[in-house]
Simulated scan of single mutants.
Amino acid sequence: MLVRQPLDLFAFGCMLLFCLVMASQQVVLKAVEEDIAPVFQIALRYGIALLLLMMLIRPKRTQVRLAPENRWPALWIGVLFTLEFLLLGEALRFTTAGHATVFLYTSPIFAAIGLHIKIPSERMGILQWVGIALAFSGMVLAFIGGDASSFGAVVLLGDLLALLAGASWGVTTVVVRATGLSVLPAKQILFYQLLIAFVVLGLWSFWSEQASINLTPEVLASLAFHGIGVAFLAFLLWFWLLTRYKASQLGILSFMTPVLGVLLGSWWLNEQIELNFIIGAGFILAGVLLVCRRPASGRRVAVA
């Protein structure tokens, strides 16, 4: 059985870079949404990343065919991965980039609950359940508070979609950890996720009439950033880190992403940050940190 090592300075640097990239993606998607719909841009970025990945694995003759026992789990993570970014793309039509980032990164909460159920060694202690209660209290506060003039039903719909995207990400982590996929090469897992997401999100974009594009320099730069930086390099880095380091410790560092996302949205897009949302987001992040702490049994809870 593969033993994952604790975080070192190299892993911390990789996670800091990963968090910066991931915090920027919602902001960049939102910045060019008048020229290209977020969900269509996500579909195109996965097409770009899929081509790059195929160029990477073909010369090395990397095996992408799955063993029979891994085919259904691979299909499931492909579907969940696609659902996550379909929900995120739709969420960005209604809510701010900052809101979307915070609710997306509730994924460790859903992952911890799923792993508690599926894997005995990942069971949570009292402190982790307190963290989950705190996080869900923060979600409620972020949803129901605020001034109606800036926090209406449309924003609530977007926030809910982003929260569901976070749940999809969390369930993806559970499937990877609870099946044989956890020991497969990162490129192999990423290949199937990108393939399914590109096809399904592309079809959704055309079906929902969101496939129009105005090729401005900003859109081209955004596509390059998302296709190469986010969907190819960042995701490949994330899966590589999961195969080498403890997922729970990586998850603790990932809480930097929603904080950076809110700050970037406010700075770049001039998004208003409501007081209730700041307090609710604080509760959410505090809850995530509690969930990621070492349980009384000495084991750690794996997170997305």
Rank of each mutant, 00 (worst) to 15 (best):
2 L>T: 13
5 Q>E: 14
12 F>V: 14
12 F>P: 00
16 L>V: 15
20 L>I: 09
29 L>T: 06
30 K>Q: 02
35 D>E: 15
40 F>V: 07
44 L>N: 12
48 I>G: 10
51 L>K: 02
52 L>K: 04
55 M>L: 15
55 M>Y: 07
56 L>F: 14
57 I>P: 07
60 K>C: 02
60 K>M: 08
61 R>T: 03
62 T>N: 12
66 L>V: 11
66 L>R: 11
68 P>M: 09
69 E>K: 13
74 A>F: 04
74 A>W: 06
74 A>Q: 13
75 L>S: 08
84 E>G: 14
85 F>P: 00
87 L>A: 06
89 G>A: 11
90 E>C: 05
93 R>Y: 07
95 T>E: 09
95 T>C: 07
99 H>M: 08
100 A>Q: 07
102 V>T: 10
106 T>P: 12
107 S>W: 01
107 S>D: 09
108 P>S: 03
108 P>R: 04
110 F>H: 02
111 A>S: 12
114 G>Q: 05
115 L>M: 13
116 H>K: 06
118 K>A: 15
121 S>M: 08
121 S>D: 12
121 S>P: 05
123 R>A: 11
123 R>L: 11
124 M>E: 05
125 G>N: 01
133 A>G: 15
139 M>H: 03
141 L>K: 00
141 L>R: 00
143 F>M: 15
145 G>W: 01
153 A>F: 12
156 L>E: 05
156 L>P: 02
160 L>S: 14
170 G>D: 03
172 T>F: 08
173 T>Q: 13
176 V>A: 02
183 V>G: 10
183 V>P: 02
185 P>L: 06
186 A>P: 09
186 A>F: 12
193 Q>I: 01
196 I>F: 13
197 A>F: 00
197 A>W: 00
201 L>F: 04
201 L>S: 14
205 S>W: 00
210 Q>S: 13
211 A>N: 11
211 A>M: 03
212 S>E: 12
213 I>D: 03
213 I>A: 15
214 N>T: 14
214 N>Q: 11
216 T>N: 08
217 P>K: 06
217 P>S: 04
218 E>R: 13
219 V>R: 10
222 S>R: 10
227 G>P: 07
230 V>Q: 02
232 F>R: 05
232 F>C: 14
235 F>T: 09
235 F>W: 13
237 L>C: 11
239 F>W: 05
242 L>V: 03
242 L>E: 03
242 L>M: 15
243 T>G: 13
244 R>H: 09
244 R>S: 08
246 K>L: 10
250 L>I: 14
257 T>P: 01
258 P>S: 11
258 P>N: 05
259 V>D: 10
259 V>F: 09
262 V>K: 12
267 W>G: 01
268 W>A: 11
272 Q>H: 12
277 F>G: 02
277 F>I: 09
280 G>Q: 01
282 G>T: 05
284 I>L: 05
285 L>W: 04
285 L>T: 12
286 A>C: 12
289 L>Q: 13
290 L>S: 07
295 P>K: 03
295 P>L: 02
299 R>C: 07
301 V>K: 00
303 V>T: 15
304 A>C: 06
